[in-house]
Simulated scan of single mutants.
Amino acid sequence: MTQQKYILYLVTAFAVTLCFSCKGKGEEIRKMRIKSDAAIAEGTGINLKYVDSGKVTAHLRTPLLKDFSNASFPYNEFPEGVEVTFIDDQGKENVITSKYAIQYKNTNLIDLRQDVTLFTSDSVTLKAQQLYWDQTNNWIFTDQPYTLITADGSRNEGDLFDSNKDFTNFVSLNNVSKQYVKETKEEE
């Protein structure tokens, strides 16, 4: 056997051994390249519409979305803010905005932070620095100070807020309130 053939056999055997030792390791190699604390995907100029039974139920807009599905507790981050419009069956819209948000995938909880404002279709405005939205139970809450302003200008301020999405089951702590009451004449 010539020296060239011997080197060719040696190189071929080495290459085959190398290929077989890497078989099935592609996923492990990809995982090593992604930092454990890095987003696996990013999107800019996001404009999503959620559709249920052919009807648009929500419209999400954000300049930047980071997907951390690879984290041990997966989440989406909206570091430059988010605006979400919720549309009910009657076509009424409620809009919520914040300068920062995180959506936790396992719990369906959204953590909205920094200048959070919720405008309801019946002209109620809720303002807070942090607000949680429990998507599973349609529940809104915060343990931070908040201000609630109704259509007639009545105000409610407090240190804790806990309510269903319609504000019909409302709990608050340390309230200061200013209410406008319409005076009516009683019949004699």
Rank of each mutant, 00 (worst) to 15 (best):
P79F: 04
P79V: 08
L148Y: 12
Q90M: 13
L10G: 15
E77T: 10
N76E: 05
V171C: 02
S163H: 03
K127G: 03
L148N: 02
Y104L: 08
N174M: 12
D111K: 04
Q130L: 09
Q179F: 13
L131N: 03
K23D: 11
Y146G: 01
V176Y: 05
L48H: 15
D166I: 02
L10Q: 03
L160I: 07
T125R: 06
L160K: 12
A58T: 12
P79I: 04
K66F: 15
A151G: 11
T125G: 00
L160R: 09
L60I: 14
T120M: 09
A151Q: 14
L48P: 01
R113D: 12
L18C: 13
V95A: 02
A101S: 15
Y180L: 08
S72M: 07
F170Y: 14
G26E: 15
G45F: 10
G158H: 11
E188D: 13
V82M: 13
D67Y: 06
L109H: 00
F141K: 06
D88H: 03
V56S: 12
I140Q: 02
F141G: 01
Q130C: 04
K99I: 05
L112A: 07
N70I: 00
Y100S: 14
T117P: 00
Y75P: 01
T136S: 13
A128D: 02
T136L: 06
G91D: 13
A71Q: 13
E186A: 06
N106G: 02
N169T: 03
S154M: 09
V181Y: 11
K182V: 06
P79H: 10
S53N: 15
K55R: 11
S121N: 03
F119D: 09
E187Y: 05
K185V: 09
V56N: 06
R155I: 05
K66C: 10
L112R: 00
E183L: 09
T44W: 06
D67C: 02
N108H: 11
T12F: 11
N70F: 00
A39F: 02
T184A: 11
R33K: 15
L131G: 00
A71M: 07
D67A: 15
A58N: 10
I96S: 01
S177K: 00
E83D: 13
T184F: 09
V51R: 09
M32Q: 12
K99S: 03
A151W: 10
E28D: 03
T120N: 01
D162W: 09
F161Y: 07
N156W: 04
I149C: 01
D88S: 10
V82N: 00
T184P: 01
S72I: 05
E28W: 15
C19T: 07
S154F: 07
T44M: 11
D166T: 05
L60E: 10
P145R: 00
Y9H: 12
F68H: 11
I40W: 07
L118R: 00
K66M: 06
T142L: 08
L118T: 01
G158R: 00
Q103R: 14
L8Q: 12
L126N: 05
E93N: 05
F170D: 08
K31Y: 08
S121K: 02
N138I: 01
E183Y: 08
D166L: 07
